[in-house]
Design a protein around this nucleic acid. Structure first.
Lengths: 165, 165
DNA sequence: TGTGAGTGATACCAAGTTGGTTACAGAGAA
DNA sequence: TTCTCTGTAACCAACTTGGTATCACTCACA
């Protein structure tokens, strides 16, 4: 099973797009939504930043998307946070027997076919944008005009208070 | 990155199909081809056995396929050795903030779309059979009639001798 | 011109997974 | 009975992962 970095990275981008531009989104606010530590969020935002998907601000303004949400696909995000060399999906066994007719060629054969499978995954990921996902949530304006809404701190409360562990 | 259990399992099945029926294939022979420890092979063969893909013999005869090679797809193998609950591919972050409009629904939304991506992967894996892969190697009979061939031990030598670490 | 908020980076931790190894009881063919 | 091989258990070291604490630095703003 793959790590949760990718799903969390997607959630970060969704929040950045979902909130209106004048809301300051810090790592703490996002951590509250994910229910984890702000450092975890900053780590992942570091990867997103390195791949020119977002900007961050050291004191005010908070983080922003660097591209339009319908121009960021899940594949972009996947590649940004998948840390293995060349985003490998399947780990082949190294140093197979060079004297065995199967062992000596198995990795070439597997790389070809498992590469096709991985490509099918990536094509699908590339067809889904952050905007597609955002549109499946209640619009920010609808939410902030609802009776429950008081402030951004209200609906992104400190994660410590809701940790149901 | 996913573990190498799956690629190794595929190699095991390829060897079983590739060798002629009268060759006794033990975990040690396969370990030699993969260049690992026989116990690793037995562990993985245990999963393949549990999913009715192979049989093993405790003293003679060695292991055999339980289905025709063109009836075993890579998806069958993947599902047999992928040990996470329901063969999950992406690990979602648990206990997201139930009071946040994004956090409270993110996992439902991600499950839907990442499920589609995973499905694309699995459809591809399901289109490739063990027989497809076996046909990309030199036929067993051609190999055993070649000048280099002396015995099964000869071309599956003990892995210790060739470990180039 | 300070001050406070937030980032980025480091260091550390516990838990889980993985590939590898040794050991040994049991099955079963010869 | 003996020999081979399996299946399983018990370890182990290395690595990854999510989490936590700490701190220097940046920068808006009062």
């Amino acid at each position: 099973m793959l790590s949760s970095r990718f799903p969390v990275a997607v959630q970060i981008l969704i929040i950045l797009q979902w909130c209106s531009d004048d809301v300051k989104i810090t790592s703490e606010v996002i951590a509250s939504s994910v229910n984890t530590n702000p450092v975890i969020i900053r780590r992942i935002m570091g990867y997103l930043k390195k791949h020119d998907l977002i900007t961050t601000a050291s004191s005010a303004d908070g983080a922003k998307l660097l591209k339009k949400a319908d121009q960021i696909t899940l594949l972009d995000v996947y590649k940004a946070v998948e840390l293995t060399e060349a985003n490998k999906l399947f780990a082949l066994h190294e140093n197979t027997n060079p004297y065995c007719p199967i062992g000596s060629r198995i990795n070439d054969v597997l790389e070809l076919h498992l590469g096709e499978a991985r490509n099918a995954l990536e094509v699908k990921l590339d067809s889904i944008t952050i905007q597609d996902l955002v549109s499946e949530f209640i619009p920010f304006d609808d939410f902030t005009s609802s009776p429950e809404y008081k402030s951004i701190e209200r609906f992104f409360p400190n994660s410590n208070n809701i940790n149901n562990k």
